[in-house]
């Protein structure tokens, strides 16, 4: 845990301050690291509120920070209410079943699952699971392919046109195709995953493959001639060459790619969920938009902020991971 804390740079001056080291310098760092960003955020909130007051939409006034703040509480309340309902539902069901059994010990009892509307927080969880799965699938494909085309210039020449062709394709263009293909091919009586999940996952993967693949390839092909000569003189076999020389030296580039990919994955997922009505944050936004109550815009704004925060946190997680696996602990990562 303390190691994790060390990775969070803004905590550092606070910890040093607590230790009483060089107090005035630490206060200055804190001021710089905290007060200035705070001022920026405050200014933004003011401008936002001001602008919001002067924008009238057909769904009422554009939400300012205050409305958004209120709506976020509403969303939490709704979530709690929904959970409460679920608990009550199961209690009632258990009670009924117990009574039945008391009358007739041989009676067949049914346990029905609760099918309530997914709340905002359920949608967040769904989106997170989908984005991580899609990203994992993409990485599992992109890293080995990137290594192969980085090592073999022939293979690179063969695949590069395809990569360049598919890289700029928007998720929205893939989605109809993916949906149809999944409907056609993914048929089973008792599917392990919902079709909507598979569709979102494949769309996300298709769009976030490329940065990881290209950056890994660039990292691999940039291994210095010296290290390649070492490998040749030692007659390292392919596997040892890859694990001892190729992977470690291409890790920085690989992570640059992975972070870009995860960012794209998150953006693509929200769009795909909106368009395909697949469960997740995108669907939440779309439903609110269709719903069109006076609170809708505020609730959408909450979703927008949450999407932003989650995107940021995903990137930080990748950064921590990079710090963990990177051999060069002195490298400045940001």
């Amino acid at each position: 845990m303390s190691r994790m804390l060390q990775n969070i740079s803004w905590l550092e001056p606070w910890m040093l301050l607590l230790k009483g080291e060089n107090v005035s310098a630490q206060l200055a760092t804190i001021f710089k690291g905290l007060a200035i960003p705070m001022a920026g955020i405050l200014a933004f909130l003011f401008i936002w509120q001001g602008a919001a007051n002067s924008i009238d939409t057909s769904l009422g006034q554009f939400p300012g920070p205050v409305q958004v703040y209120e709506q976020s509480f509403n969303l939490v309340k709704e979530h709690k209410r929904e959970r409460q309902k679920e608990v009550e539902f199961y209690e009632r069901q258990d009670e009924r079943n117990a009574k039945k059994l008391a009358k007739n010990p041989d009676a067949k009892i049914k346990v029905r699952p609760y099918t309530g509307k997914p709340t905002f927080f359920d949608q967040i969880v769904t989106s997170l699971i989908t984005v991580m799965s899609g990203f994992l699938v993409a990485s599992v494909i992109a890293i080995p392919v990137g290594i192969m085309i980085g090592l073999n210039s022939g293979l690179y020449s063969a695949l590069n046109p395809l990569i360049q062709l598919f890289k700029p394709v928007s998720p929205l263009a893939w989605l109809p195709l993916v949906t149809m293909v999944v409907s056609a091919l993914y048929v089973s009586k008792d599917p392990m995953f919902a079709k909507s999940f598979v569709t979102s996952l494949i769309t996300v993967s298709l769009c976030c493959l490329w940065p990881t693949m290209i950056n890994t390839a660039v990292g691999v092909s940039a291994i210095t001639q010296d290290l390649q000569n070492v490998s040749k003189v030692l007659r390292l076999n392919f596997f040892t060459h890859v694990t001892k020389i190729v992977l470690p030296s291409s890790i920085p580039m690989m992570f640059t790619g992975l972070r870009l990919s995860l960012g794209i994955a998150w953006m693509v997922l929200i769009a795909a969920e909106m368009l395909a009505q697949n469960p997740g944050l995108g669907k939440f936004v779309w439903d609110e938009f269709q719903n069109g109550s006076s609170n809708s815009l505020g609730r959408i704004m909450v979703a927008v902020l949450v999407i932003g925060v989650i995107g940021f946190m995903l990137d930080r997680v990748m950064l921590m991971l990079q710090k963990k696996v990177s051999w060069d602990k002195s490298a400045v990562l940001r």
Partner: peptide, 19 residues
């Protein structure tokens, strides 16, 4: 072909920096 019976000491050490 290169081989370990002809070991090379390179000008700029060429150690693997992660080991």
């Amino acid at each position: 072909t290169p081989g370990p019976e002809r070991a090379v000491v390179f000008q700029n050490h060429s150690l693997l920096p992660w080991l």
